[in-house]
Amino acid sequence: MKEELFISGRDIPFIDPYLNIWHWQIPVYLFLGGLAAGIMFFAGLFTIIGKEKEMETTVKWATFLVPVALVLGLFALFLDLKHQLYFWRLYTTVRLESPMSWGAWTLMFITPLSFIWVATYIKEAIPNWKWKISLVENLEVIATKYRIHMAWAMMMLAIVLGVYTGILLSAFNARPLWNTSILGPLFLVSGLSTGLATIMWMSKSHYERSVLSKIDIALIGVELFLITHLFMGFLASSAVQIEAAQLFLGGEFTASFWVFVVILGLIFPATLEILELRGYKIPVWIPAFLILLGGLAFRFIMVEAGQITRFLY
């Protein structure tokens, strides 16, 4: 028998008895960031391959949600900061070793880009729209001319943003549940899938929906593969990571993870999408809503569970 006790009466807020310094703001931000990355990636992709006409919701209308998601996500991040008045310090330095610094700078570029993208389509969305200032009018003409370049930038930055939402967690070797390089791709794929779900929910075109749902089924397949890999990696690793995996294999997060994330958030909506493609009538909002809910649950569970896992010493 081996046990460890604190006898100095150490009971520091948010640190003891187990770490709990990141609350709802972080998973909400990770969710919105991933969602925005997903929408931007596909808007960029279908612009580059010249499908603006067929994939109107993807390229145009869904992107109107991106600035909203990013601003709300950034606001959640801001709420999480405990020394808020100093947040500008993020932008007085570039720290290549710090994923959070990468993320802050990526958001610095991708957020304005998302606003500009939306601005170039606002006249199509609101026919009577007029920019009050002629300078803005001119800028919009220029931006519209460079749309294809913006599409490339958006697609690349969306990948960085999507991966970043996972790397933010995986960079911490002290939290064994997070400390796996699979988390970057996993969060990217999950973000892309939630983005697709949002576009599908908005789209009225049957053709567009069927293209998107085929991609989504493939992405869900990849996601399930990555989740399997995640646990295989943990179980073949050191004691701390085996213990981290146990939280999901019989431990306290078993039910919530497998029911809400894997079954209701991935397998069930993928099945519905397959049935829909086979000709069954299934309201699109059901799989879309489940994927979004599963994505959100996944991030809440990962952030919560990761903080419990720690090094044994």
Binding site: D80, K82, Y86, R175, Q307
Partner: peptide, 27 residues
């Protein structure tokens, strides 16, 4: 350095020894 710290908590997450804490003033 307190006036460079934004209180993001990344360092707290990164410490295997849980040696850092968030000061009531934020840093």
């Amino acid at each position: 350095t307190a006036n460079k710290c934004i209180g993001c908590g990344a360092c707290i997450q990164s410490c295997p020894y849980d040696a850092r804490y968030s000061h009531p003033e934020g840093y």
